[in-house]
Design a protein around this nucleic acid. Structure first.
Length: 495
DNA sequence: ATTGTCGTTACAGAC
DNA sequence: GTCTGTCCACGACAAT
């Protein structure tokens, strides 16, 4: 820790960023308002679940016979020998996309997401025709208005909680009524078509906005209803050509939302320029992406079969590239308490804890290896950094603790999600007391860290599918978003 | 040692 | 309510 001392500059910068965030949110809020207008004509019956563009949706582009680019790294071919083949792959994919476009051009966005360089947001917008321009114009105007007012700093108490994304207190219980989370009908929406791979709350307190990535390259945004608003507030974009493997948002600057995709792109949504900018392009599949609160100018991501990269966003250059695992890296997470400590989970059956300072191009030794019997789908540090929770296909949730993470205990949990669901990942809530994870019987299991077992299951009559992926709200304790393979998002709240 | 195929599983949409 | 198409996770096993 010890961050209190050097806080002055840091604090100021953060406050500035928070203000900027509020401005952008206000801009997005206008989009939401505008959608209300279109929703009026959509004749949504009362009580029906909110959805992206009911009835008027341009057909999801899932029919595209997209051939995922083959990872040379995944094939064990050294990157050096890859150039020629990689180009061939490119041509093939472009052909595939073009072919399908001529077959049914109306069902596709105006721009092929496989195109390198920025994609204009309006071109990848999947709402009604004519709406996309209005949205942008209004967003800009509103953004300026808020600039003049300059309101909306959040309380210092909240800042404490937010610090470093989720670091907060050292294992202190923030909240003890986990099992009382409830689901309200207005907190349900179908945000994207098809299977959700990833969801993320925008790190803002006043307003709840979720970004959702699905299997077919769509990213949907849902502005969860305020009291004074009754529209759907759902916006669907198509910035990627394959499964969206990760979404991360700079905790200090909401306008920087990065998304990664299996077909090798990392993009950043830039609301000012109204584009999904291309940050990085790879020959390999990108399976995971992460940001460290200690260094928001670096993107960390898992590439191909076990590859790991650190990318400097400002210089646009790789600052580290190495092989950490024998198979795809499913998650990357940082210890919010101890800088430079990172955890990865991999399909090779292990989760590893690393010291970034000891990373080398060849043969980096992990500080700790947690062994599972099957693929490990996630490895996340507790808010305090004292525990690591690993979730594996071997039907175990591992809890690793100790000064040097020397002891691991395995909590049984059924994780056979099969082919149609996104794999389960046990996530931490707002303190070190519990872990949330999907349950095949349409619920959310709560694992008590103290008791090392499932102590309760959140259930609801209006939860009509299995929640696979989760995100706890980074500011609002007790607000938990869950996502299903049918494109729905359910937001649990405290009564 | 690598590549291919198949079985498993849940959900939406069409009837 | 029932049936069908989905189809990029993974492991087991067969085929190269």
């Amino acid at each position: 820790m010890g961050s209190k001392g050097k806080m002055t500059d840091y604090e100021r910068r953060r406050l500035e960023n928070i203000q900027r965030n509020n401005e952008m949110l206000a801009a997005l809020k206008v989009r939401s308002k505008l959608n209300d207008l279109s929703a009026a004509s959509a004749k949504r019956t009362r009580g029906e679940i909110k959805s992206y563009k009911p009835g008027s949706v341009k057909k999801p582009r899932t029919e595209t016979p997209l051939v995922l680019r083959r990872s040379l790294r995944a094939r064990g071919v050294p990157p050096d020998a890859s150039t020629a083949n990689g180009l061939d792959d490119d041509v093939d994919i472009e052909k595939q996309i073009n072919k399908s476009r001529t077959m049914d051009s109306k069902s596709l966005p105006n721009v092929s997401p496989r195109k390198q360089g920025p994609i204009r947001m309006q071109d990848s917008f999947c709402g009604e025709d004519g709406l996309e321009n209005k949205l942008s114009e209004l967003a800009k105007r509103c953004s300026q208005k808020v600039l003049m007012n300059g309101n909306g700093l959040i309380s210092s108490d909240s800042i404490d909680i937010i610090k470093g994304c989720k670091s907060s207190k050292i294992g202190k219980k923030l909240w003890g009524h986990v099992e009382e989370l409830e689901l309200k009908p207005e907190n349900i929406a179908r945000v994207v078509p098809g299977r959700i791979m990833n969801l993320r709350f925008f790190p803002t307190q006043d307003m709840q906005m979720v970004a959702v990535g699905n299997k077919s390259g769509d990213i949907g945004f849902w502005h969860v209803n305020d009291k004074d608003e009754d529209g759907d507030g759902i916006y669907l974009y198509h910035p990627h050509a394959g499964p969206v493997s990760g979404i991360v948002i700079d905790p200090f600057s909401v306008s920087k939302m990065y998304s990664s995709c299996y077909e090798g792109f990392i993009r950043m949504m830039d609301v000012e320029k109204e584009v999904f900018d291309m940050i990085y392009y790879s020959e390999y599949c990108i399976y995971s992406i992460a940001l460290s609160a200690h260094d928001v100018n670096s993107l960390y991501f898992g590439e191909g079969r076990g590859g790991f990269d650190k990318w400097d966003v400002r210089t646009g250059k790789s600052s580290l590239s190495c092989d950490l695992h024998g198979d795809r890296i499913n998650t990357i997470d940082f210890n919010s308490d101890t800088e430079n400590i990172m955890a990865t989970s991999s399909t090779d059956g292990t989760a590893c804890i690393w010291d970034l300072r000891l990373m080398k191009k060849h043969k980096t030794t992990p500080l700790k290896i947690i062994n599972h019997k099957r693929a490990v789908h996630s490895a996340y540090f507790a808010p305090s950094g004292k525990f690591l929770a690993t979730t594996s296909y071997d039907d175990k949730v591992g809890l690793t603790s100790g000064a040097n993470y020397e002891s691991t205990s395995m909590v049984p949990h059924y994780n056979q999600t099969g082919r149609w669901l996104s794999t389960f990942r046990g996530i931490w809530g707002w303190d070190d007391s519990s872990i949330y994870i999907g349950n095949m019987k349409r619920g959310v299991d709560v694992i008590s860290v103290d008791e090392r077992r499932v102590v309760s299951t959140l259930q609801s009559d209006i939860l009509s599918a299995i929640p696979c992926r989760f995100d706890p709200h980074p500011y609002n304790v007790g607000v938990l978003a869950s996502a299903t393979s049918g494109g729905q998002v359910y937001i649990w709240t405290q009564p």
